[in-house]
């Protein structure tokens, strides 16, 4: 009996240590799992938001050869402008296919944003040049393609906004304490929002006579 009584305080002490360590470890583990899953969810949301843009971009890139083909018949002297559009389009297509493989890679999105901006610029130039060809502007097919192109661009812009919102909530979670520790441990990379390159997108080329 006496022996047991002597052991009891030691048992109680080691028991306390066991409880504290188990509860502490458990608490940390559960918090980490929770944060980890939260990050995975947000990253998947970014991917799904990108898929929305991707569908519209593909549609846009598919329309461009049609546009150029129609334009060719009217403006044989503007070979350079047309070629610039086709080149920009091809570069954008390859950037998009890289980006769709891993939409959370910051570099790929930045490249795509750049390539798409360049395409927008080249298209803008083509539109300005087209002003000199009233027949082309009145062409039925041309009008239809242009209409579809504008509509697609609006959709791209809208899904881009949804994508940027998703990226922002992912990046916020990634950078805030304590989730930033988990993000660092498991390699949750910074996601790139799709910034419009102001210069490229809004620089309407001047017409020189």
């Amino acid at each position: 009996m006496k022996n047991l009584l002597n052991i009891e305080p030691i048992l109680a002490f080691t028991g306390l240590i066991v409880v504290f360590s188990v509860v502490f470890v458990l608490f940390i583990v559960i918090v980490v799992i929770g944060i980890f899953n939260g990050l995975v969810g947000l990253r998947n949301r970014v991917k799904n938001a990108y898929a929305q843009i991707d569908v519209q971009l593909k549609r846009r890139y598919d329309l461009i050869p049609n546009l150029v083909e129609t334009a060719k018949g009217y403006m044989a002297h503007e070979k350079e402008t047309l070629e610039a559009v086709i080149n920009a389009r091809n570069q954008a297509v390859s950037a998009a296919s890289t980006a769709s493989k891993d939409p959370t890679s910051a570099g790929a999105i930045a490249d795509l944003a750049g390539a798409d901006g360049a395409l927008t610029g080249a298209l803008g130039k083509l539109m300005v040049v087209m002003e000199a060809y009233p027949d082309l502007k009145a062409n039925e097919n041309m009008m239809q393609v242009q209409e579809e192109l504008t509509s697609t661009e609006n959709r791209v812009a809208f899904s881009r906004q949804a994508y940027n919102d998703a990226v922002m909530s992912y990046n916020n979670k990634r950078e805030m304490f304590p989730s930033n520790i988990v993000a660092g441990m498991f390699g949750f990379n910074f996601a790139q929002s799709w910034e419009l390159d102001d210069e490229a997108a809004r620089d309407v080329p001047k017409v020189s006579f």
Partner: peptide
């Protein structure tokens, strides 16, 4: 020992519950 048993059960409940 009552204390040890209580400790073990509390840990177990905490893990499952949380």
């Amino acid at each position: 020992n009552g204390g040890a048993i209580a400790i073990a059960s509390v840990c177990c409940l905490l893990i499952v519950g949380i």
